[in-house]
Structures are given as structure tokens and as C-alpha cells.
Nucleic acid binder design. Structure first.
Lengths: 334, 334
DNA sequence: TTGTACGCGTTATCAT
DNA sequence: ATGATAACGCGTACAA
């Protein structure tokens, strides 16, 4: 089946000039009327509004953007739309931006630096007024110092970049997670970390080390469920076997639980598992996942505040959410 | 902390005129050189390229868009970025669009018609060249007939709209799911449907009915895990209790499994559960979820093909993925 | 209160 | 091979 398609010339849309002719006024009057200027008479305004309704006219945002040198659009850059962690951050951004009269567009980079650069160019180029980075790094070709106030980082601090950054104290949160396990009596507490080189990875390892000492064992994943499963299998092969594991995000924790079960272990009786983020799926695992909640919606709201008002808050508050995947070691009362 | 922010005037970016002056040529020549025209001498071209590197110049896409009357951007509209189902569709779109030289922006509508309308206006207004609708409805203010070839629907057919549509045969797929349960020996097969009024809901109910007859029981959810949990609790209160349940998506199936377990039932020994979509979490539930896989990446690719070439394929192929959440009724061998 | 004229940054046409 | 000029659609300073 062949149909008309996008590459054909678009039908001619009405311009402001058409409205002006229909209403019997000049384009400047139409422009003023549409902008809500008080300097336009009841009668003239009504004729203009009638013409707009009749034609279905909407202003051309491209021309308007060129003239005003701003678009009232924000662009959110994230590594992958597939990670539910980002969803609620975006919702927070949309709420706050919408309230301030800004639209929100999302760009998924799939970890591809080239795609990042192309999307970031949208900022340089006037398509969007501000950029929210959830990617943990500065897109190539972006000169941050000269873009002060137009870019903000969320969740991950970007090393070496002097950017307003929204997030929690990741090391402290990791320490809180491990302290919860220690409070239950665990001493052999392993860690499934994010990918090496990632800032969050380092911060969460740091907190885990502070709470456990240096003799505990560690495996690296890449924040996916499959990588968590593989890392857990690896840890279980080591002796002495850990009685608890702290995972750097919930998805890896979900993978870890699967690996433990496949190895014949019960969670939490034989192995306690704690995650990080509190994504929506965490409450529906079996057993439900103990985790650290990040205030994702607030992340988004704070990011917009930083962009619009230059207000960068200190660390936001995290919360330990205790569910059923953690218990004292060797606990058979479950 | 107060810092410079977005609402302040942006620093002046270099324009094509600046490059022209630096290279000692006219703007037309710069434009041609940047467009890769063969009509530009080696020496001139080199001076221009040097000036571009030196200044970090990038073309202003807004001005370019105004002049060319196209942006080489696609906009994907989806109900919520929080549903992992959409993620892989977007990835497919990005792949295919990128290969054709188009960028992809995503707009999350949060089910809000006003937000839908605002985002859709981006199309009318020249900010994007094409629109991919994953929302199951036409945004207000969009006159589809006049936009033929610029809009395509994915996953859900939009009733009454003559749009190219990408998706599977949902009724047939639902029937396949239920037939799998019947093949295992189940006869009391309940259904947890999507929200009433939704097209997918109707199509999947239709397939379920075709396979079960009309006497089976039904509960409605809204595609969230919590709604699946509530619906399952509702179904379990009825007599005779179903031995299997077909859920209209994986997230409701995950909720259903939780409700069953909380009611003291074992899955699949006491209750078989089958989902729909095969989101990434489906392989990591306990037990792993039997489901219908939709070729989401192909959805995205096909959507771009429809936009760029006017090619709308017939239904795409779905696959039954058998995991461990389904078994013969009363099966205690697991 | 309303209209005229210019400029936002780019590309295409035409002339050289 | 390169330059001058008009036009894309809109907002606003200025004039009336």
C-alpha cells in the first residue's frame, strides 16, 4: 500500500496575513490580539478571533522562535527511555515546566555519543531553551561555561563540569542501605555495582565500603536485570558465600533475586537483597524488594527550578523502604 | 544558591555572517559549503571550515526550518513514558529515523488531552515534520485528512480515523493466548481487561470470548500493576474460581500474580497466568511470565516507513512466549 | 487604537 | 566559482 507521505510538500497552512485579510486589519493587530495585548478593541478582537476559529489558525512556532529568540521548550536527555527510573523524573519536569508555560521534549540517546551530540545541538540552535541531562556526561560539542544557566544535571553529578546538579547523597544512601543489613545482623554483605567508570557506581561503592570495611566482595553490572543475574551468580560462586547483597539499582536486584532462586536459595531466608531507586516494579517482586527511594518527581521539579530561577538545592532526601526481601541471616520464620 | 538562568538572554551565538567575514567570503558561499555543494573551491572551503571550527559554529535550525519549511524531526506522542512497552517502540523509531536523517523527539502526554493538543501543535507549526501516535486517539485540534501522510498510529487503531496503522491482530493474539490455556486443559479462564472504552481492550476481549465462549468472567483494570492486583482479588472472590487468567498486559499480570500469592494460591499449580506484550520484566517475575510478544522494535521501524514512504504494512506477527506461569490445572509436578 | 517597516538567520534564484 | 537579494512568518519600535 502506497499513500501520501511526509516527504511531500505539506499543505499550505494559513498565515497571520490570511487572518489579517479575513478580519480586515493588519498583521500587527493580529499579532497583538493573539498575544493578548490590551491595546485591541472589542470589535476588532472579535473579528480576529472569528477568523482564527474559522481557519483553525495556529501561530508558526518556528517563525515565532526565530523572531523571539526563544522557544519555551525544554529538552530532557536520557540514556534510555527503557529504564523506568527516568519516567517519574520526566513527569516531575513536565509538571513544573508546564506550570511555567514551557513544553517538554525528551531525547533518548541509547548511550550513543553521536546521538547525544545531535540532540544537544537542539539547544545551541534555538530549538529549545534549556537542557536537562540525565546522562551523566556532557554531550560532545557543548561548551558548558558559555551555556551557564541553560543546562542542569539530574541524578548524576557530572565530574569536572560546573553545573547545577540535582540528586541525593549517593554515598550516604548506600551506607544507609548497608547499615540496614548490618542492623539485621549481616556481616558478609556483597555489592552488585553499576558499570565501572560511572559516577554513581563509584559513590555507591564508597558508601558500601564505609559501612562494611574493605574485605567484602563486589561484582559489576550495567544496571540491567540480566547483568544483575550474572553478577549474583558470580558472587554465589565465591566463599564464604555472602548472606546479603546490596544492589546499585532495583533492576539488578530483580536479576539477583532470580539468580539466587535459580541457585536454590530462598530470599530473604538464605539471602537478603536490597535495591536502589524504588521503581514501580520493586513493590511487585517476590518477595517485595527492600530499597532506597529516590524522590524522582522532586528531582524533576528541582531541575526546572534550577533552569528557570537558577535555584540549585543541596542534596534531596532519600528514604529507606523496608519490604520483605531483607531479614536477619538464617531467619526461617518467614 | 542563585545562579544565571535560562530566562536571561542567551549569549550571542555566531551566525553565518560571522563565518563569512572570518573566511572572507559571502554568506551564500558559506551556506553552500556547509550544505556540501560541489560548487566550492578547495581553498575557499578550507577557510570556511577553519572558521567554523574556530568559532564552534552550528547552523541555526530554527532559521533553517523557517526557510526550508521542514525540520527533519519526528515527534512521538505516548500516554506515559513510564510504561516499558513504549520504550522499545521508540527505539525502533529512532533507529529507522536516524538512518533516514531524521531526529526523534518524544512527548509524554500523561493522558492529558490538553497536553496532547499542545504537543500535536508542534506538527501544525513546523517544529516537526511527522507525528507518531501511540496514544490511541487523535489529539484535539488536529485535522487528520489535511495531514495525510504526516501522521501514523502505532499499536492501537484509532477508531474513525483514516490513518496508516502499525500493529498486530489483537483479537487473534488474545485468542492464541487463551487457546494455549485451553490446550493445557483449562476451561474456567478469566480475563483481566484494559480500561473500558479502549480499543485494545475491546479487541482482546473479543479474542478471549471467541476462545472461551461467553460464560467466563471478566474484570477491568487500567494496565497498571495495582489495577491487575485489584482485579485478580475481585476474580478470586467469585465462584467457581477460575483456574487460569488471561491479562491484557504484562503489568496487570504481574499484579495478578501478586494477588494470587497473597490469597495463598500457587502460580502456576493453582492458577495459570498469561500476560501480553513481553516487556523486559516478564522474564524476571516469579514464576517467569508466559505472554504474547509484540514486535515492538518492528512497530517503530514500520511507523517510520509509513511516514517516509507511505508504506503501511498489514498486521505484524506476534509470538506466544511460553514460560513457567502457565501449566495444566491442578498440576503439582512443578 | 491601528498600520508601516525592519530584522530574526537561513537558503534559493539570479546575475556576474 | 562566488555574490547580491528576496523570502520564509512573525513581533515590535515607531509613526500616525
Amino acid at each position: 500500500m502506497i499513500a501520501p507521505h511526509m516527504t511531500e510538500p505539506a499543505p499550505n497552512r494559513p498565515r497571520m496575513e490570511d487572518i489579517a485579510r479575513l478580519a480586515g486589519v493588519s498583521v500587527s493587530t493580529v499579532s497583538r490580539a493573539l498575544a493578548g495585548s490590551p491595546r485591541v478593541t472589542g470589535d476588532t478582537r472579535e473579528r480576529i478571533e472569528a477568523a482564527v476559529r474559522q481557519t483553525g489558525y495556529v501561530v508558526n512556532q518556528v517563525a515565532q522562535g526565530l523572531r523571539l529568540q526563544r522557544s519555551r521548550q525544554l529538552l530532557v536527555l536520557l540514556p534510555t527511555i527503557a529504564n523506568p527510573f527516568f519516567a517519574e523524573v520526566v513527569q516531575g519536569i513536565e509538571e513544573a515546566a508546564g506550570a511555567a508555560g514551557y513544553g517538554v521534549l525528551v531525547g533518548s540517546t541509547e548511550g550513543d555519543p553521536a546521538r547525544e551530540a545531535v540532540l544537544a545541538r537542539q539547544l545551541l540552535t534555538g530549538v529549545v531553551d534549556g537542557l536537562v541531562l540525565l546522562t551523566g556526561r556532557i554531550p560532545a560539542g557543548l561548551d558548558v561555561p558559555s551555556l551557564a544557566g541553560q543546562v542542569v544535571a539530574v541524578s548524576e553529578t557530572i565530574p569536572g563540569a560546573d553545573l547545577p546538579t540535582i540528586g541525593i547523597d549517593n554515598a550516604a544512601a548506600a551506607q544507609t542501605a548497608v547499615d540496614h543489613l548490618r542492623g539485621l545482623g549481616h556481616r558478609a554483605i556483597a555489592h552488585i555495582a553499576g558499570p565501572p567508570g560511572n559516577v554513581l557506581t563509584a559513590q555507591r561503592i564508597e558508601g558500601w565500603r564505609r559501612a562494611t570495611g574493605t574485605h567484602a566482595v563486589l561484582a559489576f553490572g550495567d544496571f540491567t536485570m540480566a547483568s544483575g543475574e550474572a553478577a549474583m551468580a558470580e558472587l554465589l560462586a565465591q566463599l564464604p558465600r555472602p548472606t546479603a547483597v546490596f544492589c546499585a539499582n532495583d533492576e539488578m536486584a530483580i536479576g539477583a533475586i532470580k539468580a539466587a532462586r535459580d541457585a536454590g536459595l530462598r530470599v530473604p531466608e538464605d539471602l537478603s537483597v536490597i535495591g536502589f531507586d524504588d521503581i514501580s516494579f520493586a513493590a511487585f517482586t517476590h518477595p517485595p524488594l527492600t530499597t532506597i527511594r529516590q524522590p524522582r518527581r522532586e528531582f524533576g521539579q528541582a531541575a526546572v527550578a534550577a533552569l528557570l530561577a537558577g535555584q540549585a538545592p543541596p542534596h534531596l532526601a532519600y528514604t529507606l523502604i523496608v519490604r520483605a526481601s531483607t531479614a536477619p541471616p538464617g531467619d526461617d520464620t518467614h
